[in-house]
C-alpha cells in the first residue's frame, strides 16, 4: 500500500516534468521524481518492529555471537540506506548542473518559458 503511494509521488513528479512550461517547475518535477525513488528504495529495507542498524557499546559488551544474532534478527536492512546515500549525492550534482544551466538560459534568452526557447527545431 505504501509502495503504491510512493509510485503516485513518482507519477506526480513525472507529470510536473512533462506538462509544465516554466523551466524551474520542470526542475522541481525532476527533484520530486528523485525523492520518490529514494523513498521507495529506503522503504524496501524496512522491517516491522526493527531497530536502527547501529552497534552500540552495550551491545559489544555482550559478546560477538550474540551481537551478530541480535543484529540479524532485529535490525532494518542497511544496504538500501547506503544505496540511497549514493543516489542522493548523484541527484545533488545533477540538480546543481540543471539550475546553473537554467540561470545561463535566463541570461541569454531573458525568459524561463520553454515555449519561447525554441531556436532549435526540425
Amino acid at each position: 500500500m505504501l509502495y503504491a503511494l510512493c509510485f503516485l509521488l513518482f507519477m506526480i513528479g513525472l507529470y510536473c516534468a512533462v506538462v509544465k512550461k516554466n523551466l524551474v517547475k520542470i526542475v522541481i518535477g525532476l527533484a520530486i521524481m528523485e525523492y520518490a525513488v529514494n523513498l521507495f528504495l529506503i522503504m524496501l529495507g524496512y522491517r516491522v518492529g526493527g531497530t536502527a542498524p547501529i552497534i552500540g557499546r552495550s551491545d559489544l559488551q555482550a559478546g560477538a555471537e550474540r551481537v551478530t544474532a541480535h543484529f540479524i534478527n532485529s535490525a532494518v536492512d542497511p544496504l538500501p540506506q547506503a544505496l540511497v546515500l549514493t543516489a542522493i549525492v548523484i541527484s545533488l550534482g545533477s540538480l546543481a548542473l540543471l539550475i546553473s544551466i537554467c540561470i545561463r538560459i535566463y541570461d541569454k534568452y531573458g525568459t524561463f518559458d520553454i515555449t519561447e526557447i525554441r531556436r532549435l527545431r526540425g
Partner: peptide, 20 residues
Amino acid sequence: ALSAFRKDFQRPDAGGDNKR
C-alpha cells in the same frame, strides 16, 4: 557561482559573451 545571478539586469543582446 550561483549567487552571482541578478534578476534586475538589462535585456540580453544577441551576443554570446557574458560580462558578469
